[in-house]
Design a protein around this nucleic acid. Structure first.
Lengths: 243, 243
DNA sequence: CGGGACCTTGATTATCTTCAATGCTAGTGG
DNA sequence: CCACTAGCATTGAAGATAATCAAGGTCCCG
């Protein structure tokens, strides 16, 4: 089968109007005026760039709140060598509270070239303590969405077949990317190895490979490099629930 | 092994008989003086009792923060009829933020006779926004522990065998119960049906049954009704990691 | 050209589910 | 007191799903 796949995909992402992924994400939850949007972007610190495969460490003393500007990161629990669980995937527009990563054996790893920004004091406070107003509400909605996502992932791991897990994961990803980068519906950017997918979805690489092929053969998706086209969203959603 | 140690002796190891499970739990994270303990208990509202099997609904308008006084509750995601995932188990001393349960198809169910208290305004604020002082710190530590527990559960579901899942779950439970009720080490109170266990651990009832027997036959635990005795904690812990 | 990272494939095996009974115990009403 | 039921634990047999093992294959890069 000519399934040609991934590799580092370093095209500069096309972001309309210069809006950051975080701002886009927040806007997708709550209408914000330009002043509030600027407040968000002004609240972000310098950009740190990490190579794919490197761990994001905290050199400073505080426990900053990070925002993913670009690229993919993962919260990883290492078990025996060659055995790990990717607890969560973080992509552009996501907020990562490093305080939650203090748990031993839980590390933040760059899966692709990764750019993160530290959230300044005001933003970190907004994140940890909440804030009134539309901005606070947008942020709160984002946090609630993340908690729902965690629940969804537990359901995936606990009660879904491999086919369902992958279908459901792709659907979730599509929505997330639409929110964060305003990407077109029906298109998913997935610059991850099947190995990473496997460790996130609790499956073996081989099985992920086979099931992905099955989903393609079923005409639900089509792959071209790191890009996935959702051919039949309705049927994909249907299979995520029962199949 | 009661190591005699001045630092340890400052911590109230033996708790007052009438202390609530919540107070006990918080004390297990941070030494609190009697005034602070009373503040916690004064911050709790009336007790609501639920029959086993009933759902905990919100009759009032607000989204209260609940504290489990007694019994077991579960956050349940219902899939098809006869298919569900128990996302989390709540036992005495646990704090349940009903705001997190607003997600559709996520309900709070009483697994046994259940008594819950609403956390009054001050306590709810402390929960949602944090607070300074030892009390705030204790609460924050409890919340962090809960987040670590969620991560641990994802690892269980994603990367552990049935044997490991059950062993690891029992170990976690033992520690939780020691914290909340000061129960003896090596004893677990588990008034849950194997059905519930299965839906929490992502397994079938039949398999839970067989694996439990295996663990018993291996001499790691012994069961007498709803009471489990941990016969060999070290080996149980070992099997939770690699078996 | 050789090596490395990743995807793909086939064969084999293990783990776990499903189906279908069978006990067991406690509660209920006659 | 005794069926009688309901809920739960247990068993066996059969089958499905997914893991593991072991190669190849492709593409890219130094």
């Amino acid at each position: 089968m000519p399934g040609r796949d991934t590799m580092l995909d370093e095209r500069p992402r096309v972001l309309a109007a210069g809006a950051s992924a975080l701002a886009r994400t927040l806007l997708s939850y709550e209408p914000l005026d330009p002043v509030e949007v600027r407040a968000v972007e002004a609240g972000l610190g310098g950009v740190l760039t990490h190579r794919a495969g490197s761990n994001v460490e905290l050199d400073g003393e505080g426990l900053p709140v990070l925002v993913v500007a670009d690229g993919w990161a993962a919260s990883v629990v290492a078990l025996e060598p060659d055995r790990r669980q990717i607890v969560d995937l973080h992509l552009a527009g996501d907020v990562v509270d490093m305080a939650d990563l203090q748990a031993k054996d839980l590390t933040l790893t760059a899966l692709t070239r990764l750019r993160v920004q530290t959230a300044g004091g005001a933003m970190a406070r907004l994140h940890r303590l909440g804030a009134p107003g539309r901005l606070g509400r947008a942020w709160r909605l984002k946090q609630e969405a993340d908690r729902r996502r965690a629940v969804r992932h537990i359901v995936r791991l606990g009660r879904m077949s491999a086919y369902q897990r992958i279908a459901d994961f792709l659907l979730e990803l599509q929505v997330r990317q639409q929110r964060a980068t305003g990407s077109a519906a029906g298109v998913i950017d997935l610059p991850l190895t099947q190995d990473v997918l496997a460790d996130h979805l609790g499956l073996s690489v081989v099985h992920v490979n086979r099931v992905l092929q099955q989903i393609r053969r079923d005409g639900l998706i089509a792959c071209r490099g790191a890009r996935i086209a959702v051919r039949d969203p309705a049927r994909l959603a249907h299979h995520a629930l029962r199949a």
